[in-house]
Design a protein around this nucleic acid. Structure first.
Length: 390
DNA sequence: GTGCACTTTCCTGTTT
DNA sequence: CAAACAGGAAAGTGCA
């Protein structure tokens, strides 16, 4: 278990870093790190764990090979702390390695530099790189932090992505009734923790419903389900809208702390019938942690063309004009990310409209489903993205 | 405890 | 007519 959590830790941190671009210093930082699986990360933000803190780890989301010296130091300190290693045993002054150099180090080199922590670093490093095995030397000891399954999970997700891509080859336009295909949803990871890898139910990726099969799905989530039509189509959707998508049994999302105390979902409460209320009681709170802003979520989908196919597209990349191709699907994805199964495009678009005032978005008159990034948004420009992906 | 930011939900009316 | 758009209003959560 601990092992499977690690991945979300990593992603969480990545996300918390990524989504804090309010920070002007971050705003200038390309948002799409070259992390091998960063694409998956889109909705993997499961910010609850992470490094325990809000401090950002500069190395997160970056491939170790790309780390700067400072990032290497940062990471080493983190590992030292994590492993309760006596910092005094490490002579950081001798550590003049950048990420590339670090990655070239053999275990013994690391041991020389970092003492007993060296082995741990070596193994963690390879985990981070998502490599199945280190190039030389003995297989890294199982990291006690439990991140050994990281690569495996990633590859599993990768497989799903591939399937999705295949599905996407099919013409868009008609999304099947089961439109949940998000390859990059956090639930996916969370689900996979509970269900074994072959788990496919949640997103219809691997278990496409006949007909629609994953088709649309591809990167998307969202079913054009009837419930989408309004505040959740009926009060029954408490969590149900997605019960189609995520049968409760198989959707462990609302687990643990969530459902405990009757924490309520953020936002104005939906009007509920008595029955619905009763039904709701004792159930999860779908409140999602902060740190993820809608516009950033949208941006990230857009800048990952390999994943956003069918969801949104750029109308004019230079100008930051984009269009929702499958608005409900995006809304559903957003809902998944926020653990809010009743999210609809209507609501999402309301939130989008609030961005006009803040100039995060600009109006595009007369064009349906078309928005434009405004001056207060960042990270979507090609220059910002490209450099970072290579 | 309070206020603010950021949504989320609801609603009504308008436009496409 | 349906879907999308607009925006006001109310309300919840997290954070400072």
């Amino acid at each position: 278990m601990a092992a499977t959590c690690e991945i979300s830790n990593v992603f969480s941190n990545y996300f918390s870093t990524m989504y804090s671009s309010d920070d002007p210093t971050l705003a200038s930082v390309p948002p799409a790190p070259a992390f091998g699986a960063d694409d998956l990360v889109l909705a993997l933000g499961s910010p609850q764990m992470a490094l325990e803190g809000t401090e950002k780890a500069s190395w997160l989301g970056e491939q170790p090979q790309l780390w700067s010296k400072a990032q290497v130091l940062d990471w080493v300190s983190y590992q030292a702390e994590k492993n309760k290693c006596d910092p005094s045993t490490i002579d950081l002054s001798r550590c003049e390695l950048d990420g590339a150099a670090l990655c070239r180090c053999a275990p013994e080199d690391l041991r020389l530099l970092f003492g007993p922590l060296g082995d741990q670093l070596y193994s963690q490093l390879w985990d981070l790189r998502g490599c199945p095995q280190a190039p030389k030397g003995p297989p890294p000891p199982p990291p006690q932090g439990g991140s050994s399954s990281f690569p495996d999970e990633l590859s599993w997700i990768m497989e799903l992505l591939e399937k999705d891509s295949l599905a996407l080859q099919e013409p868009l336009g008609e999304q099947g009734p089961f439109d949940q295909g998000s390859p990059f949803t956090q639930e996916m990871l969370e689900d996979c923790r509970q269900a074994s890898p072959p788990y496919t139910g949640s997103f219809g990726v691997g278990a496409p419903s006949p007909g629609s099969s994953d088709v649309s799905t591809a990167g998307t989530g969202a079913s054009q389900s009837p419930h989408a039509s309004d505040s959740g189509g009926s009060d029954v959707d408490l969590d149900a809208p997605d019960s189609k998508l995520f049968p409760r049994d198989g959707f462990p999302d609302y687990k643990k702390g969530d459902l405990k105390h009757g924490k309520r979902k953020r936002g104005r409460p939906r009007k509920l019938s008595k029955e619905s209320r009763e039904c709701l009681e004792g159930k999860k709170s779908k409140h999602a942690p902060r740190g993820t802003h809608l516009w950033e979520f949208i941006r990230d989908i857009l800048i990952h063309p390999e994943l956003n196919e069918g969801l949104m597209k750029w109308e004019n990349r230079q100008e930051g004009v984009f269009k929702f191709l499958r608005s409900e699907a995006v809304a559903q994805l957003w809902g998944q990310k926020k653990k809010n199964s009743s999210m609809t495009y209507e609501k999402l678009s309301r939130a989008m409209r609030y961005y006009y005032k803040r100039e995060i978005l600009e109006r595009v008159d007369g064009r349906r489903l078309v928005y434009k990034f405004g001056r207060n948004s960042s990270g979507w420009k090609e220059e910002e993205v490209v450099g970072h992906r290579n």
